[in-house]
């Protein structure tokens, strides 16, 4: 174990502890750290935006090959229209840019979601039911689970009689599914804390961990 000599690691350590003080109560250090990160995050993004997108995706194509890229100026102006949103009187101008992005985004999405989100998902559910192989009829469980959960979210018939029974089965499947999410989420939250502990032990105190 040897303490880190890198001043950056100590800066990170200081801010890490500042945040942990929030567990005790909201305080000056926590608020300071929170605003520092907001500012640096925004600054990071602005630089990246300028360096990579404005220069890389807009200026470079225009400056190297103006002839075939000049039309990019039109959407750029439309993008600038968006800024009119902060002037209430002219805010409506931003609607053209919005309408264009929302409309084309919707058009892009529609067939692709049908294919990837509906048809391919349906196709994967069309399974043969057999009890011979190692599956032990898992396919049957998958199909029953999918169907009954779908019926639970079916709103045109009251949950009574047979449909009610199937919907009831569906809710059990859903609960098991949520249980899986729950279990995994616990793991996720702990991983984040473990990550910080690892940082403190390994980077700050220089412990040899693996």
């Amino acid at each position: 174990m040897h303490l880190s000599t890198d001043p950056w690691v100590w800066i990170a350590f200081f801010f890490t502890l500042s945040i942990f003080t929030f567990l005790w109560k909201d305080n000056f250090l926590y608020k300071l750290a929170e605003n520092v990160t907001v500012g640096i995050g925004m600054g990071f993004w602005i630089v990246l935006w300028w360096n990579q997108t404005v220069v890389g995706q807009f200026w470079t194509p225009l400056s190297t090959d103006f002839g075939s890229n000049f039309h990019l100026i039109i959407p750029a102006i439309m993008g600038l229209f968006m800024i009119t949103r902060i002037i209430p009187k002219y805010a409506w101008m931003s609607r053209y840019a919005l309408a264009f992005t929302i409309g084309s985004g919707a058009g892009f999405g529609l067939p692709r979601v049908i294919q990837g989100g509906v048809l391919q998902q349906l196709y994967a559910t069309l399974l043969p039911i057999n009890f011979t192989s190692v599956g032990l009829g898992y396919n049957l469980i998958i199909i029953i689970g999918t169907l009954s959960s779908l019926i639970y979210f079916f709103f045109s018939k009251e949950h009574k009689g047979a449909i009610g029974g199937v919907a009831k089965l569906g809710i059990w499947f859903l609960m098991i599914g949520f249980g899986a999410t729950f279990g995994y989420t616990v793991m996720a939250r702990l991983s984040l804390f473990i990550g910080r502990v690892l940082f403190i032990l390994k980077d700050v105190f220089g412990m040899h961990l693996f």
Partner: peptide
């Protein structure tokens, strides 16, 4: 993907839309 998302991604895995999956720290 993070463990939070992991359980929800199994339909995509089973449909072959994902070739594999790394779920969380595990």
């Amino acid at each position: 993907i993070t463990a939070v998302m992991a359980a929800d991604s199994y339909p995509y895995l089973q449909a072959g839309q994902l070739i594999g999956l790394l779920g969380g720290l595990r």
